[in-house]
């Protein structure tokens, strides 16, 4: 109450999270907080449990055979396990995958899918949403003349932006990006990074990345996972230049392994 600077609001809080697949541990000991309107980076070599972490945030464990987790994950202070309608929880969280997924529907329907599932039927409302989301994802100019062609036949870079437009059409509070630049050319990557910087004012972004420099460019704070264990979390810049609690973090960000 008497803090000089108001603490930023916590969006996601994770306590003692551990994830298993068929009883085998995939990630453990995660304790961190993600603040509202920040870009939160997660770095670490392949197989360190980053994707599994994202899948817990929107409770995709429930759709994944053998996946279980312990500990608490709360979004806006509410335990994700407490949700009776998981689909409603997921609809508030946008996800972008490593490999772009343009659904085999028209470009228009790709973006209109989520609003339609939410019950929006009016053509003018849908038109407006589709255009707004495609513009925000920096794709509108390239596809505005062929909105009825298949989204799944776009180029990789375009499909990735379509995926982002689709995630934005959910009007998410939380946007999860999982190594989005893996299958995308550098120019598109830069375009998407610019989009993300703009989106920060509207939502909280969790950016899992295999590129340490990408985290450095975008993330306010960053967590480091290593082979199934949470190592540490801190201001992104601190991981590169400031004090680190674990020497492996510095070794990793400086490219000495991974």
């Amino acid at each position: 109450m008497v803090d000089a600077a108001p603490q930023p609001k916590v969006k996601v809080s994770v306590k003692d999270l551990a994830i298993q697949y068929g009883g085998k541990a995939a990630l453990s000991g995660v304790n961190l907080e993600i603040r509202e309107h920040e870009i939160f980076g997660i770095i670490g070599p392949a197989g360190s449990g980053k994707t599994s972490f994202l899948r817990v945030l929107n409770r995709m464990d429930e759709m994944t055979t053998g996946m279980t987790f312990t500990g608490t994950v709360a979004i806006d202070g509410r335990d994700v396990r407490a949700w009776r309608n998981l689909y409603a929880l997921r609809s508030r969280i946008g996800v972008v995958f490593p490999l772009p997924v343009g659904l085999p529907l028209s470009i228009y329907d790709n973006v209109a899918l989520s609003p339609r599932l939410r019950g929006i039927r009016s053509a003018s409302d849908l038109d407006e949403i589709v255009e707004r989301c495609l513009r925000r994802a920096a794709l509108w100019d390239e596809v505005k003349d062929r909105l009825q062609s298949l989204g799944s036949l776009l180029s990789g870079g375009q499909q990735q932006r379509l995926t982002i437009a689709r995630a934005l059409s959910q009007e998410p509070e939380l946007l999860l990006l999982d190594e989005f630049s893996i299958a995308v050319d550098p120019v598109t990557t830069m375009k998407i990074e610019d989009v993300l910087k703009e989106l920060r004012s509207e939502m909280t972004i969790v950016l899992v990345t295999n590129l340490v420099q990408q985290a450095r460019r975008l993330a306010d704070r960053t967590a480091f996972f290593l082979s199934g264990a949470f190592v540490e979390v801190g201001k992104t810049e601190d991981l590169f230049t400031g004090p680190v609690t674990d020497p492996r973090t510095r070794e990793y960000v400086e490219g000495r392994f991974g």
Binding site: M60, Y87, I93, L113
Partner: peptide
């Protein structure tokens, strides 16, 4: 499978996913 995953991640139920993406294709 990726199409289903994409739909589920958007909050579609299994049935909505089947109806909108799996069956039409």
């Amino acid at each position: 499978m990726a199409f289903r995953e994409a739909c589920w991640n958007m909050g579609a139920t299994r049935w909505q996913t089947i109806r909108t993406v799996v069956l039409p294709n």
